[in-house]
Amino acid sequence: MTNVQSARPETDRRRRMSGIGRVLVAVYGVLALAALGRSFVQIVAKFDEAPLAYALSALAAAVYVVATVALVRSGRGWYRVAWATIVFEFTGVLVIGTLSIVYPDLFPHDTVWSWFGRGYLFIPLVLPVLGMWWLAKHRPPAAPSRGANGADAA
């Protein structure tokens, strides 16, 4: 947290992670934890079996963690990070999900995204959509059209 943010407490934070958005962030957190845990086990116990799939798992897990943090934090920088990570996840689940069905040989071992996240109740497929919807509805106060001191007016 920077000084700028502590100068305008609550209001900013409220915009992003208050209300039902908290539930979204909580589910993201749980998914991040699940992906981290699974990828930790895969890498420690059997990385040699499927380096590509397991490296992807680790990358996906890291991105979920960053996305969770970005959703919680306020400010335009984090807002962009949130967009980038969520778009990355959505792309990942679509591309890897499709590849895992069309070319099953490429991914003999499960990743978070195989079969569009079937192993995770399809949460990896649904969550980015909800996340993007949430971000689109909750732009940061200092939006480009507003100018830098838009937050003071709010």
Binding site: G19, R22, A26, V30
Partner: peptide, 27 residues
Amino acid sequence: GALLLPPAAIFWGLLERSRWSTVVLGV
């Protein structure tokens, strides 16, 4: 991982006391 969840959810609920924090506890 499971051991981390309840304390995190309770702690987060203390920061903002709203209905959705209760839903987060449930999740």
